[in-house]
Simulated scan of single mutants.
Amino acid sequence: MKSLVGSLVLGSLVLFSCSKKQTTEVNIPTFDKDTIAAEAAFKMDSIKISDSIKAGTNLTLAYDNSVLLFPTITDKTVLDSIYAPTLLKTNDYSKTGFATAFEEDKSNFYKESKPKDFQPASHQTWDTQSHMSVFSNQDDMLTIRYTNGGFSGGAHGYYNELYKVFDLKNNKSILLSDVVKNPKDKIWNQLLMDSFTKNDKDGQKDMLLEKVIPLNTNFYFGNKSITFVYNQYEITAYAAGVVYITLDYKDIKDQLKPEFLQRVRFN
């Protein structure tokens, strides 16, 4: 029933990282041509848990979680910001600390998800999944993608993506205020809407729920453009999936801070 993988033992729970070594040399892929290229070799490690239990005749609960570990990042403020989106309750960012946090989070999920007086008519698996991945890493700027999804009955599951960029040189998160001159400028609404409707190839604009697309804080950037990410129901119906709106620097450079353009080497 249970599928547990690992090199750490916590009580009866067995956890392991994707590598037998504490630190692993890996090549980090990029996701598109404009994403800032990854360093040739980036030191990191990871820890993962996969577990499931029977919660009745027709119901299985499944828990799947993983986090990345960065041995060379030691600044507490940066580490706090890196792991805040995981919602794991720990201040110990070691494998041991995360193993303990996984166990607590898993137990809470099972406790909160197990129905008292309900069983599906046919077999279902209710699950939760949470993962981290390096999206890009160059020039002391690390972009991490956080994904979260699951199913707890009903018509469909859920899924969302979050991107955070970290300035490892200055030990801080790169915020929207570090990128744009005036986030409240209404010109952003028009720029985002124009790009969304012009570049839509999957019919997402037909599922638009909002008359105005607001600037948000979920973004990643490369050498030529910045992409804003909108999850299900933020601006479109569930069936539209995740929406990515990309704006080229050449079209919005007057709205961007000069120091940001210099940092991403845009000429």
Rank of each mutant, 00 (worst) to 15 (best):
K186H: 10
L208C: 03
P214E: 04
S195T: 09
Y159Q: 12
S177F: 04
V179K: 02
L209P: 01
D200K: 06
S152W: 02
S177Q: 09
L209M: 10
H156V: 11
L192I: 11
L175N: 12
N182C: 02
P183E: 04
Q204W: 00
K172W: 03
Q204A: 09
S152R: 12
A155M: 14
Y163L: 02
K164I: 06
G153C: 10
G157L: 08
H156A: 15
Q190C: 08
K172V: 09
V179T: 03
K169F: 05
N160A: 03
Q190M: 14
G203V: 02
M193Q: 15
D178T: 12
Y159R: 05
L191E: 15
K201S: 06
V179L: 01
Q204Y: 01
D167R: 03
N160V: 04
M193V: 13
K172M: 11
N189Q: 13
L208S: 03
K172L: 12
Q204S: 08
K201W: 00
L175V: 11
P214A: 07
S195P: 07
F166S: 01
D206E: 07
K164D: 01
M193P: 08
L176R: 05
Y163K: 10
A155E: 15
D167Q: 06
G154H: 08
V212R: 09
N189R: 13
L192V: 07
L192G: 08
M193I: 13
L208I: 01
D167E: 05
W188R: 04
G203M: 01
T197R: 13
V165K: 00
A155G: 10
Q204L: 00
G153W: 13
S173G: 06
M207G: 05
V180F: 01
L176N: 05
